[in-house]
Write a protein that binds this DNA or RNA. Structure first.
Length: 857
RNA sequence: GGGCGCGUAGCUCAGCGGAAGAGCACUCGGCUUACAACCGAGGGGUCGCAGGUUCGAACCCUGCCGCGCCCA
């Protein structure tokens, strides 16, 4: 074995072996209990970023652990067709050829998208292999494949017949660049600098607006019914400037009398709130802008773009003396298309909607009544806030790439929804709806459409409901809530997953969001290349506290790489020294072996408990410290003299060392699969750790006595090392010393180990101590440092210890002197404080003696 | 404007009612035959501020200050 772990070669070799061997395959006919995760399908246009790397690390960890625990573990991969994003990519390609999609026509364009997918789509799938994702590749799905398309048609038809899908003219978010409707969640709000202008509509009415151009479409002015200032005007009319149209003044509860002048302009065709007011007061809706945001209202502004029209109209009003006030810049929230960042325009148009109220109520109830658990539980509040206030979902998109709405319109105004296997209406004048469905419509079906629904497949029976959904809190609403709605609806009230495990966003080492404009984006493939997939995964895993953001930095990844190397070298040492895993553990073990086995049991217990709570960061921390501190720094060091000594003791330690590493590598495998596989197979001769049994806690191996003994031993060694360090003694310099009181401390048998670790020689005849070290109440060490000791350094060390002991004694004594404490605190707490005081007083006495023994300065 | 959350060591974060912790960074000393991607030792925090509850508060409550996110 090389002295350093080389991840690149190992990772390439191992992953392909795993896939070829079929370790990641799950079968529906298995007798084992199922464990299922469906991957949040990445966009077909996407490539692996840190967010995926985190998400996948968590899912792979859960899946691999369950697989080792004997579950039929299925992690199902796939991709999303990503309507707008994909169409944009292909349209850009066409644009480079001087073509638009309209030049090709719908059919040819869609063909072209499929061709693009075949050639360039799904780069992320190859990158997932680099990360080590243990997905069942045989079950890869795509939201536009045949089976999933059938699922889309099936549920559309069912919702349609249940009256939960309807077509209506509504104000929707419209992207004037993509030329399509957007759902609420496809709109990103940012605080932008705009303007707030106040316009005089009459002697008594002034209105304020950030979108002055919309005034051309005003059909009323609204005031609050109780507003004394305007009561007398309700029912009258004012003349709308620039147009000469007369519009009514209406009273509406939803007007905020405290905002601005208390009077608002009403533009039903271009503002969602105004649309509502318009509905309540039976106002006409006047569309004054086309789908590209160009003014269509007749007059001097016809043909102007909305952003040209705004200042032009303000100027015209100003010329007439109708501008009362102008505030610029005026910072306010503006919606942008999440795909192209174009400012969204509220637009009145005919679209398809899902009536979410009953579906969302069921989605909320499933969490409320405990069928679905959200981890961490605090985030359930956000979930409820969303599902309990959900607007109807606009599902039609004016795109070509996606599931086409299965509705046909007849020559006489008929409207037919065509389900799967149903005849498309034939005859003159029938035509299908031009629009496609929102991409999230098909992703909402993902947990069951990927398992074969609407067919009653064995997969569906075995693997649904899925066990855990792992995703970032940012798409709790986008996607999770929708899967809940459709899952409960389609699967007769059966939830799509039992647990929703949420994680945060990956951030840079200062906790800042990764973004191109900051220039702090890290490509996970870069780290995988330079430090290995395991190091990259471990860095993310180590930061993955439930629901919290995960900062990462290259420094920490180096640390993770170092950890992998540490495991490599520990195993290398073990193999060089004959460690093995054959046969039962020996019965007659010494305290050191019993100690490490006992520690291992605690670690197994902790890892299991933390894992069930999705505490990945703490799992990593536990294993990191056990591996590095207990196993490498202490157990291996303690084993060295034993192994060198040979005989039965060495044989026993070879077996224990083999066992501990075997178990440790299994425990680490779900997080860092590659290096553990390489080491475990080398250590055990086994075929693979991916399907090896998960470690079980053996209560009979828990040994408090051995743990106590080793704690004392470690304290003694550390104290002597501290003395040596403070005295400036070279690490290599051996010091003659006599150890007293080991028997009283119960560690008499460990004298050789202590001497070995603290580099002390036996005291022979004529030994005379130049320094006396009181380590614990029982143990003291007499050393001949072959010369005068550094009295000042030793005094400083002792004074420091004394100060600490003094503080401890004062604090504990103060508590015990307080009758309220002794009277009210529980007995074990009081006893603990008493013990602490006694220990502190013993330390003080010991230190005082040592100080007195020092030569006077 | 409404809601949620966060302010703990230089940095990033655990801890969430009974002794202030980790990783990285830092200081000192070391090539001790697994590992210098290492080993040994060490320094560093009135736990945002002010009140309150409690025998006891980083932890619970109230207010304030400063950040962040989601929704209008």
């Amino acid at each position: 074995m090389a002295a350093q772990y080389q991840p690149g070669e190992v990772e390439r070799r191992r992953y392909e072996t795993w896939v070829r061997a079929g370790y990641f395959k799950a079968t529906a006919t298995s007798e084992k209990p199922p464990f299922t995760i469906v991957i949040p399908p990445p966009n077909v246009t996407g490539s692996l970023h840190m967010g995926h790397a985190l998400d996948h690390t968590i899912q792979d960890w859960l899946t691999r652990r369950r697989r080792m625990q004997g579950y039929e573990a299925l992690w199902l991969p796939g991709m999303d067709h990503a309507g707008i994003a994909t169409q944009n990519v292909v349209e850009r390609q066409l644009a480079a050829e001087g073509l638009s999609r309209h030049d090709l026509g719908r059919e040819k364009f869609v063909e072209r998208v499929w061709q693009w997918k075949a050639e360039s789509g799904g780069a992320i799938l190859g990158q997932m292999r680099r990360l080590g994702d243990s997905v069942d590749w045989d079950r890869e799905r795509f939201t536009m494949d045949e089976g999933l398309s059938r699922a889309v048609l099936t549920i559309f038809k069912r919702l349609y017949e249940d009256g939960l899908i309807y077509r209506a003219e509504r104000i929707i978010n419209w992207c004037p660049r993509c030329l399509t409707a957007l759902s609420d969640i496809e709109v990103e709000h940012t605080d932008d600098e705009g303007e707030l202008v106040s316009i005089r509509y009459s002697d008594e009415i002034v209105v304020a607006t950030t979108r002055a151009e919309t005034m051309l479409g005003d059909t009323a002015v609204a005031v609050h019914p109780d507003d004394e200032r305007y009561k007398h005007l309700v029912g009258t009319e004012v003349e709308l400037p620039l147009t000469g149209r007369r519009i009514p003044v209406v009273a509406d509860e939803h007007v905020d009398p405290a905002f601005g002048t208390g009077a608002v302009k009403v533009t039903p065709a271009h503002d969602p709130n105004d649309f509502e007011i318009g509905q309540r007061h039976d106002l006409p809706s006047l569309t004054i802008m086309d789908e590209r945001g160009v003014i269509t209202a007749h007059g001097p502004f016809l043909g102007l773009d909305r952003f040209e029209a705004r200042p032009t109209i303000v100027a015209a009003l100003r010329a007439q003396g109708l501008i009362v006030a102008e505030k610029r810049p005026y910072v306010h929230a503006v919606g942008h298309c999440s795909r192209c960042k174009t400012t969204v325009e509220p637009r009145l148009s005919l679209q398809w909607f899902v009536k979410t109220e009953p579906l969302a109520r069921a989605a909320g109830d499933a969490v409320r009544d405990g069928r679905v658990r959200i981890e961490p539980a605090e985030l359930a509040k956000r979930y409820f806030a969303w599902v309990d206030n959900m607007h109807d979902w606009c599902i039609s998109r004016q795109l070509w790439w996606g599931h086409r709405i299965p509705v046909w319109y007849g020559p006489d105004g008929e409207m037919i929804c065509v389900g799967p296997d149903e005849q498309v209406p034939s005859g003159e004048g029938w035509r299908q709806d031009e629009d496609v469905l929102d991409t999230w419509f098909s992703s909402a079906l993902w947990p069951f459409s990927t398992l074969g629904w609407p067919e009653r497949t064995p997969e569906l029976a075995k693997f649904y409901p899925t066990s855990v959904l792992v995703t970032g809190y940012d798409i709790l609403f986008f996607w999770v809530a929708r899967m809940m709605m459709f899952g409960l609806y389609a699967m007769d009230g059966k939830q799509p997953f039992d647990i929703i495990a949420l994680h945060g966003m990956v951030r840079d080492e200062h906790g800042k969001k990764m973004s191109k404009s900051f220039g702090n984006v890290v490509d996970p493939l870069d780290w995988i290349e330079r430090y290995g997939a395991d190091a990259t995964r471990f860095t993310l895993a180590r930061g993955a506290n439930p629901g919290a953001d995960v900062p990462v930095s290259e420094d920490w990844t180096q640390g993770s790489r170092n950890f992998c190397n540490k495991l490599w070298n520990a195993t290398r040492f073990a193999l060089l020294n004959g460690a093995h895993v054959d046969g039962d553990l020996p019965a007659d073990l010494g305290p050191v072996d019993r100690w490490i086995l006992s520690r291992l049991q605690h670690v197994i217990g902790e890892v299991d408990e933390l894992s069930e709570q999705f505490e990945l960061a703490k799992v990593c921390d536990t294993l990191y410290h056990f591996a590095w501190d207990d196993v490498c720094d202490w157990y291996v060091e303690l084993a060295k003299p034993v192994l060198a000594g040979g005989g039965p003791a060495a044989e026993r330690t070879k077996r224990v060392l083999g066992h501990v590493l075997d178990q440790l590598l299994r425990l680490l495998h779900p997080v860092i699969p590659f290096v553990t596989e390489e080491l475990w197979t080398a250590l055990t001769g086994g075929e693979t750790v991916t399907t090896a049994a998960w470690p079980a806690l053996v209560p009979s191996l828990v040994d408090d006595a051995a743990e106590g003994e080793l704690a004392t031993l470690r304290r003694v060694v550390t104290e002597i090392r501290r003395f040596r360090s403070d005295q400036g003694l070279r690490p290599a310099q051996r010091v003659v010393a006599r150890l007293d009181g080991l028997a009283a401390a119960g560690i008499a048998g460990h004298e050789p180990l202590i001497r070995s670790l603290a580099r002390l020689e036996e005291a022979g005849d004529g030994f005379s101590a130049t320094a006396q070290l009181a380590v614990t109440g029982d143990v003291s060490v007499a050393l001949d440092t072959r010369g005068t000791i550094d009295v000042a350094a030793e005094r400083a060390r002792l004074e420091k210890d004394r100060a600490a002991a003094l503080k401890e004694a004062e604090q504990t004594r103060a508590k015990l002197d307080n009758p309220a404490f002794v009277g009210k605190a529980p007995e074990p707490v009081v006893r603990k404080i008493k013990d602490r005081l006694a220990a502190a007083e013993a330390d003080l006495a010991r230190i005082a003696t040592a100080l007195e023994a020092l030569p006077k300065a």
